[in-house]
């Protein structure tokens, strides 16, 4: 019995570590969701596809024989540019048409990239080469790998950067102003179209980085890979309070850890069910999310 209890605590810590790594990836994707929502109230369902594009860009750079130091920037800038183009060609023309057309357009964009990917690259999963020397560290029963450290580390650095960008720079100030009231921001001389483009760029870059991290972690990528993590990140964003940047991080981590606990102690079959059950629960109990504020609709 005592042995079981000790194992239980070992397991708890272990699943917590695994969840932290997976949750970091959700958090990176969720940030893009939440930033875009914060600024133009659009739930960008195509966001998971920017993550997929990032993963493939990183994959091809690595395949070509370059290191991760090149793969990361290429993936981030590449998905960012794709997102800016999508925003310019697809979302901007219908921005004034209301939220439902925008939402449906986002779904369409998402399907477009999934099937474009299947058509161009092929639907079979590709093996992401193991470019780093993946070491395993053992502490008694608890183990973690260097990839997990890299994931948590990269996520932490990118979040610090985002925190600084939004809170302490002129661009960040403009983003906050645009989010608060776009028309007023425009009257103050802010080029809101440019700010929206920048927001899309940053959000998609973070997703692109997450794509490369996932390639390293699970060593397999495929064109449909953005679908489920995209939805999960959406759950994470809602969980933390959509539009709220720290909320996205908190939501991502909670979701990742919850999923791993379910997988470890129960069964992996229920993992996705739990993730979406959490979403429904949050929407029922606290519709604005954990860190979301109660904002009265402006009339």
């Amino acid at each position: 019995m005592l042995e079981d209890t000790i194992y239980f605590f070992y397991d708890l810590v272990q699943y917590f570590i695994n969840g932290l790594a997976q949750g970091s990836i959700y958090a990176l994707i969720a940030l893009g969701y939440t930033m875009v929502y914060g600024i133009i109230r659009l739930i960008n369902f195509a966001h998971g596809e920017f993550y997929m594009i990032g993963a493939f860009l990183g994959f091809y750079v690595v395949i070509a024989g370059h290191s991760l130091w090149i793969a990361f920037p290429v993936a981030m800038i590449g998905s960012g540019i794709v997102a800016v183009i999508v925003e310019r060609l697809v979302y901007r023309p219908i921005r004034s048409a209301g939220r439902i057309p925008a939402l449906i357009t986002a779904l369409g964009t998402s399907l477009f990239f999934q099937y474009l990917g299947q058509g161009v690259i092929g639907a079979e999963p590709k093996a992401f080469p193991s470019v780093i020397n993946d070491q395993t560290f053992m502490f008694g029963e608890i183990m973690f790998t260097s990839t997990q450290i890299i994931i948590v580390g990269v996520t932490f650095v990118l979040m610090l950067f985002l925190w600084w960008l939004v809170g302490y720079t002129k661009v960040g100030k403009a983003m906050r102003a645009t989010s608060y009231n776009r028309e007023a921001a425009e009257l103050m001389g802010i080029n809101t179209n440019r700010i929206i483009s920048i927001t899309f760029f940053i959000g998609a870059s973070l997703a692109g980085a997450a794509g490369v991290l996932v390639g390293l972690y699970y060593s397999t990528i495929e064109p449909m890979m953005g679908l489920i993590p995209g939805l999960k990140a959406f759950v994470a964003a809602v969980l933390g309070g959509i539009g709220n940047i720290p909320g996205a991080v908190v939501g991502g981590l909670i979701l990742g850890i919850a999923e791993n606990l379910v997988m470890g102690f129960w069964a992996s079959t229920y993992r996705d069910a739990i993730a979406f059950a959490i979403l429904i629960f949050i929407l029922l109990v606290k519709p604005t999310g954990i860190l979301g504020k109660n904002i009265k609709e402006k009339v």
Binding site: N18, Q22, T220, N260, M263, S268, T269
Partner: peptide
């Protein structure tokens, strides 16, 4: 011990 097609993370199952 069960997983599903398209799963990518087997660490928890392998641990058990």
């Amino acid at each position: 011990f069960a997983y599903q097609q398209k799963d990518v993370d087997f660490r928890s199952i392998l641990r058990r």
